[in-house]
Design a binder for these strands. Structure first.
Lengths: 340, 340
DNA sequence: CCCTTATAATAAAACGCTTTCCTACCTCCT
DNA sequence: AGGAGGTAGGAAAGCGTTTTATTATAAGGG
């Protein structure tokens, strides 16, 4: 019932091979023949069957984006999806499609899902949250020569390719800015010790402090689980220390929300008593009071880079490990101010 | 080089037909034969080639999610992505994959992108933002018997299937709650007139007001573009009216942010002077001050429903138009309070 | 003017599955 | 004992493309 390349060939009075060449813009077809075939394709509103083409040419123009897509994730972490939008944008431009591979599958381990997807050759490449990169998955990818990009630097040394934000530099920026406004005792609201984003940011914090000749006090470094209530409590505790910090770095917006609340509840003023700088901007930020000074990264274009890099690896499988780190920028707003 | 069904058949000493039956859990294969084949598949780490299977069986176990995925969308509208997560979850459970079809394609109109995707039979079904449902797209879908679900009720009468939140009921809930706390003059911060979500919500607002025997004042109904600054200005203007409203309904969180700011800047107290109720909850809401009273819908499970419905339509193409509207719930928090 | 080389076009062989017969064999009635 | 009915398994025909030879035709070179 659906029309095929044969119908087009018959109607145009040529062979299917010629039609195929027209479809794929290959050489060895005369201009007027091409024209004739295109006319017929147009008339029949023909589009080649993707599965058949994939099978014959042995690739699918499809890329997998592997992550857990659980309920509420988009609220917790819209950043992840901005990256996805960037990837989708870039891939779409180049004629590729992006499929979501949900690793949050009941009864299956994430790496099993990944393995199955790779085996079935349903895609030409994989973009995967580095959280899921275990040595086993690494072996899988390497063993199958399966082109991939990790979102985030994997937690162990690997020859897999990855892209990430420059977390060390971000912390540097934050520290230097706070110090330039006159702060001297800086606190760091981090996340879990297992989360390498936070550990990277912490590392940057320590080196920046050292370079500025300031002491890093361990009681000013907080490891928070991703729960608003706990963050609020640890921020309150921090402010009730005998000598509380005069500047706080919040490593994500959740921490910023909790910390701001704690500061206000403690009767302190921002930025007069305590300065605050947060990571990752949000369109609502300028409308929130106080407007947070922010270290931001353009994640959409990080996604564009990821897509682009992966496509290059697909075209040239011999390509070596690729990495890319996006540069952060400082958005000056109301929670930091030069002190008297 | 990659191993095929032939390799498995040879190694297990059976025909490829039998292997295929094992793969697809079909009848007419003895238990011990099945076992033997499974062993070999396991040993060779075999997974059938998806394209070949798709071609042969004439469907792809792939679903398209069509929308514009532009930069910043996840921040503006994380809700959309919660729906996507729900769809992905449900489809994954049933062995389907979800592909993003980015309609934000340079040089191509959205409907062209949709048309091409449908023709190429790259997927078995389509989930599409109802914003893109024009009569032309409707004809396309109907003409090809292509199973689809619209996210949101289309703006014109159609026999396409859709799911949506019950916007009318949501407004009802909001109005009734505000009135029950003692408010009498209610304002409505809506979006663009072209956006049927807002128009639905507005319709619900009007009928609820009428049923409560209250007059709807036209100057209390605001149509905002999705820009924080403009919202802030129109909210300020609203509060500066000779007789300002004592309750405001904000049809999304962006409006809530802008409106709260305007109220505070006008020196008014929430909820003592002005009550406020917003649509769509956010995990940060409880940590924001004041904590907004909210009309919320579980969008993840709306997505689950969408996926489920689409799968049913695929299995049974003769199925008639399907619609589903999710029920809203009221989350009582700090921006509304019973008045003295 | 013949021989080589480039170009157009085609036939036919994959690509790796699913599925529809078809055969062989067994069991069960009557 | 003979036919009806059921099960296991296999041969082979697609599915709709791409691609590799291969042939026919035209163009250039000495």
């Amino acid at each position: 019932m659906p029309i095929t390349i044969h119908d087009i060939a018959r109607e145009a009075g040529v062979s299917i091979a010629t039609v195929s060449k027209v479809i794929n813009n290959k050489a060895h077809v005369a201009p007027d023949t091409r024209e004739k075939v295109l006319k017929v394709m147009e008339r029949f509103n023909y589009a080649p069957n993707a599965s058949a083409a994939n099978l014959a040419r042995r690739f699918s123009r499809n890329i997998l984006y592997a992550d857990r897509f659980y309920k509420g994730l988009p609220y917790e972490n819209p950043h992840m999806f901005d990256i996805i939008c960037g990837v989708s944008h870039e891939l779409g431009r180049k004629g590729y499609r992006l499929s979501l591979l949900n690793l949050d599958s009941p009864g299956k381990k994430p790496e099993e899902v990944v393995e199955e997807a790779i085996h079935s050759r349903v895609a030409d490449g994989l973009i995967i949250n580095s959280v899921f990169i275990t040595p086993k998955v690494e072996q899988l990818l390497l063993g199958y020569d399966f082109p991939q990009i990790c979102i985030g630097k994997p937690s162990f040394d690997t020859i897999l390719s990855w892209i990430d934000t420059n977390n060390t530099l971000s912390s540097n920026l934050a520290v230097e800015h706070l110090i330039s406004t006159g702060c001297r005792t800086l606190a760091f609201m981090g996340g879990r010790k297992e989360d390498c984003i936070f550990m990277d940011r912490l590392r940057g914090f320590r080196t920046a402090m050292e370079r500025c000749g300031l002491e890093t006090r361990e009681e000013y470094i907080i490891y928070n689980p991703p729960e608003v209530e706990t963050i609020f409590q640890s921020a309150t505790a921090l402010l009730n220390l005998p000598s509380p910090p005069d500047g706080i770095i919040c490593t994500n917006s959740l921490m910023a929300v909790g910390t701001v609340r704690a500061i206000k509840d403690s009767g302190l003023r921002i930025p007069e008593d305590v300065s605050l700088i947060a990571f990752d901007d949000h369109p609502y930020s300028p409308m929130v009071s106080p407007q947070p000074t922010v270290i931001d990264v353009d994640l959409f274009s990080l996604g564009v880079h990821a897509g682009n890099l992966l496509l290059k690896k697909i075209r040239n499988p011999a390509m070596l490990i690729q990495t890319y780190t996006a540069l952060p920028r400082l958005l000056l707003r109301g929670t930091t101010k030069v002190r008297a």
